[in-house]
Design a protein around this nucleic acid. Structure first.
Lengths: 365, 365
DNA sequence: CTGAAAGCGCTTACAG
DNA sequence: CTGAAAGCGCTTACAG
């Protein structure tokens, strides 16, 4: 029963206790600031800690305190199934929106001494759900981007740890945080149809199962139709939230000499990036020949030419809010089942055909 | 001593053992595939596991097996100190290069059932090193981007866990993985000076302490000078690896009506993005009036106009290599002190003044 | 305020 | 092959 320096290196709490001449309980107390120890005790412990370079082991702490101080985050890695049944992976692309959200989660988590454990999944992989369940046992709670598990699995998972979905769907056992797709899309359609007078419009989608994508698609279609303009729709307008995916859609349409609409609303900015690029490569001018819009307002959207008209979401805030919701569940046992919707706003820049004004800096979200 | 269902939810290995009518040791063995158990034992355990939805607790496993199956990653969040002493944070920007590297680390880690624990630090924060040391005790090893700790701290940290630096500097106690800055920069200068004939060139830097930045700066300056061209240098050319940082440098130079060089080599692509944008906003044409190049070849660089001439690094591969190096240290006790250098290649596109050819897809790295 | 002891949920020699 | 038991390094009632 000699718990001291086992030769492998790291000092344990026993080493500190011996060096300070106190019990391990006292060491633990000064380290965690519980039950204020006497100044003398505190000092001796602090000196010993500093001398030995002691840092408590995370696993032991977690096991004992029943708190890992880790939030697990799952993002979806893109894979796109092609028309011919093949698979095309755009893995090399950075996923700016999810990565930025994760930064928001992480910064919020730091304030609570939580760390971020990330796991990216390819939903076409055979056992990706096993990895998510394993992640759950390494974390105090999980934040799931998009829709990576079906409702049944989500319900099962929520029995392991609290779950917050980001841009997913709220359920009795999970809380959801997302942007207001409907309002954003309405504003966009109104601008495109009423202000610019476009008569034919298409929506270039993201992952087919993504709740964000579904909501944006539905709202866009309904609003366009309601406004009396023509909604160009169909399976060929299916992208995957990536620039390469968006570009591919355009390439194919152009290859089969399809008649393009006057305006294309993309599922997100990254898609719009690829769309603008593909159109330009083929000699089409944006917005001269065709208008293109995005969604999210990722920072690079502010450096593109033409400047991208898009629907702004408070990206980092989405992440921070998701963490806070999760933390309340983990820490205070707050109930699941909430649905938090953050506001979106239309940002009119150039790619819709608006005239470039003086450089517009969006106000901080 | 009743270790069974404590009411809080998750079944433990004791519950499984009881349900299967075996000992917890047997449960552990079939779960971990050790010492092949009898088919009968295996089946009963597997049935009980499935019925109870048992997943081993990560902390308990880690404590007992002395392996957390977690790799900690530290990236540097941008903050830039302004000339007037103020602080300007570009926190809202996505850090595409580090994020993409992290994806590479994570995918490699998945193959070994490791997860990625990320921590972003602001080196101007007062106690960021405390957070890094805490991260170390939640991980089996650490990968540090850039230069986030000084050599002394690195040495101390390496006594806690194995360390791999990414684009850092190799030392006896740490292994480093990075791209070949010198060769890449040489090729770039040769192209700019010899092929394009530029006579005045500047380097717009990244973080001043970044080893990548230092190497690129030094090589660029030396090569330009050696070639007989003029190297424009000075503190006003200090960026921070972000688009906003690059744009700010240009804004200031323009504001003080400085004479711009014929070509600007940026520390990375993201900076180049901001530079191109700022120049364009001021009516300057890239590459007509001034050439701009990047470094990294991040995917968006392929969707910009003009297409960015840059030095390609095998980004995801850098991450995967860093993980593999770390894994060898964690698992096989491999010694630190290696330095792995991955090749870079010049990618000539349009922003240097080359004529746009047919769209060039770089071959997979 | 402080210490001795139990316990967190696993893995792994050690016997059998 | 399998089980009883020790032990991983902490935290936290429980006494004193």
């Amino acid at each position: 029963m000699d718990n001291s320096d086992p030769g492998n290196g790291q000092p344990t709490i026993y080493d500190v206790a011996r060096a300070a001449g106190v019990s391990i309980a006292s060491v633990s107390r000064v380290l965690n600031g519980r039950r204020n120890p006497l100044p003398d005790t505190r000092e001796r412990v602090e000196r010993a800690v500093a001398e030995l370079g002691f840092i408590p082991d995370g696993a032991a702490r977690a096991l004992s305190a029943r708190l890992k101080e880790v939030v697990g985050v799952v993002i979806r890695r893109p894979t796109v199934t092609m028309a011919d049944g093949g698979i095309f992976a755009d893995e090399e692309e950075s996923l700016q929106f999810p990565d930025l959200i994760n930064r928001g989660i992480e910064v919020a988590a730091q304030h609570r001494d939580f760390s971020l454990l990330v796991c990216s999944v390819d939903v076409d992989d055979h056992d990706y759900s096993r990895r998510i369940f394993a992640l759950a046992r390494k974390s105090d709670g999980l934040i799931l981007h998009d829709q990576v598990l079906d409702p049944d699995q989500l319900a099962r998972l929520s029995r392991q740890v609290p779950i917050v979905t980001l841009a997913g769907v709220q359920s009795p056992s999970t809380t959801n945080v997302g942007g207001d797709n409907v309002t954003g899309m309405r504003e966009l359609v109104r601008h495109l149809v009423r202000d610019h007078g476009f008569r034919t419009l298409a929506y270039l989608g993201g992952h087919a199962t993504s709740p964000d994508n579904i909501a944006r698609h539905a709202t866009f279609g309904a609003e366009v139709t309601a406004s009396g303009a023509a909604f160009t729709d169909g399976p060929q307008w299916q992208g995957n939230y990536c620039a390469a995916g968006g570009a591919r859609v355009i390439e194919r349409l152009l290859a089969e000499e399809a008649v393009l609409p006057e305006a294309i609303a993309c599922a997100n900015d990254q898609t719009a990036l690829g769309v603008v690029h593909a159109l330009t490569q083929h000699g089409l001018d944006v917005p001269g020949d065709i208008a293109v819009t995005g969604f999210d307002d990722i920072p690079v959207a502010r450096h593109l030419r033409p400047l991208l008209t898009t629907v702004r979401q408070p990206i980092q805030q989405l992440g921070a809010t998701a963490f806070q919701a999760l933390y309340a569940m983990v820490r205070d046992g707050e109930a699941a089942g909430r649905n938090v919707m953050l506001p979106t706003t239309l940002i009119r820049r150039e790619s819709c055909g608006c005239t470039p004004g003086p450089a517009v800096r969006p106000t901080a979200g």
